[in-house]
Amino acid sequence: MNPQTALEILELVGNKWTMLVTYRLGEGAMRFSDLKRCAAPISSKMLTQTLRELERFGMVSREVLPTMPPSVEYRLTDLGRSFLGTVSGICDWIGDNHEALEEARRRETIAA
């Protein structure tokens, strides 16, 4: 694998917004406004950038819906769904360990 491509992919999948957007799209297809609402506190600009990168790497598909006014719906592709398992594992780990992590951070802050 090309080292530059590997670095780009690592930057994409290691990004907190990529993980959050992937996790939320794991619940099903969403319009931009719905995704922004449930992925708070992401800004519109960052959500747009994240979705474009995920689309560029084939992890998200974008469909323009024939509504008035037109709206766009995003969904995970097969590749994105395969990444969702990894993201879900990380989210589960955070849920299982957030109290211990927060306690360690408090101890470090007091010691400093």
Rank of each mutant, 00 (worst) to 15 (best):
60 V>E: 00
68 M>V: 14
35 L>F: 01
108 E>D: 15
78 D>S: 14
23 Y>G: 05
84 L>E: 06
54 L>T: 00
23 Y>I: 05
28 G>A: 12
84 L>M: 09
64 V>P: 03
26 G>A: 09
15 N>D: 14
39 A>E: 02
74 Y>S: 01
20 L>M: 12
37 R>W: 06
105 R>I: 07
83 F>S: 09
56 R>H: 15
8 E>S: 13
30 M>T: 04
59 M>D: 01
58 G>E: 09
95 G>W: 00
32 F>S: 01
20 L>R: 06
58 G>H: 10
6 A>N: 05
49 Q>D: 09
108 E>T: 14
52 R>K: 13
22 T>G: 02
19 M>V: 06
57 F>V: 08
72 V>N: 01
80 G>L: 05
52 R>A: 12
78 D>G: 13
26 G>S: 08
25 L>D: 01
50 T>M: 03
68 M>N: 13
27 E>C: 04
90 I>H: 00
47 L>A: 06
107 R>E: 14
11 E>M: 07
41 P>A: 05
41 P>R: 03
85 G>H: 06
93 W>T: 14
80 G>Q: 04
75 R>W: 02
58 G>I: 09
46 M>P: 01
28 G>Y: 09
9 I>H: 10
53 E>H: 13
16 K>S: 15
17 W>K: 06
85 G>K: 08
16 K>Q: 14
63 E>T: 15
61 S>T: 14
54 L>A: 02
20 L>T: 05
42 I>Y: 03
89 G>Y: 00
57 F>L: 09
24 R>P: 01
110 I>F: 13
2 N>M: 10
47 L>S: 04
35 L>S: 03
103 E>H: 15
85 G>E: 04
81 R>E: 09
87 V>W: 03
52 R>Y: 08
55 E>W: 01
56 R>P: 06
15 N>T: 05
55 E>C: 12
93 W>D: 12
44 S>G: 11
